[in-house]
Simulated assay, not measured.
Amino acid sequence: MKPFELKYVAGQQGLLREALHNWGISKRTLASVKYGGGQITVNGKEVTVRHPLEPGDAVTVVFPLEELGKGLQAEKGDLKIVFEDDSLLIVDKPPLQNTIPSREHPSGSLANIVAKHFEENEIPATLHIATRLDRDTSGLVCIAKNRHIHHMLSIQQQEKKMTRRYEALVHGRVDHERFTITAPIGRKNSSIIEREVRADGQFAETEVRLLKVFSDFSHVQLKLNTGRTHQIRVHLAHINHPLVGDDLYGGSRELISRQALHCRELEMIHPVTGEALKFKSANREDMLSLIK
Rank of each mutant, 00 (worst) to 15 (best):
I149G: 12
H171F: 11
R173I: 09
T163K: 10
E120D: 15
Q73H: 08
L140H: 06
E104I: 02
H151P: 07
E167A: 02
H171D: 12
S109Y: 08
S87R: 00
A125L: 07
E159P: 08
R103A: 13
K160R: 15
S154C: 06
A130K: 01
L169I: 08
R164G: 12
G108T: 01
I181L: 15
E84R: 03
L88N: 03
E119C: 10
D175P: 12
D175N: 08
H105I: 00
L79E: 11
S138P: 10
T180G: 10
N98Y: 14
V170T: 01
L127A: 06
V82K: 07
R173V: 04
I113H: 10
S107C: 05
K93S: 02
E75I: 05
Q158S: 10
I90W: 15
S154A: 15
I155A: 13
S154T: 09
T163W: 14
D85A: 06
L133V: 02
N112Q: 09
E120I: 01
K161Q: 12
E177D: 13
D78E: 13
G71Q: 04
P94I: 00
D134S: 07
T137M: 11
R173A: 13
R165N: 09
E120H: 01
Q73V: 00
P124A: 08
L88I: 02
G77R: 10
G172F: 09
H151F: 11
E104D: 14
Q158R: 11
R164A: 05
F118I: 02
F83Y: 15
E177C: 11
K160P: 06
G172K: 02
F118S: 11
V91F: 12
K93Y: 12
N121W: 00
R132Q: 07
K160M: 12
D85W: 11
E177A: 04
M162W: 06
H148Q: 14
L169S: 10
G172N: 03
G139Q: 01
I123Q: 11
Y166P: 06
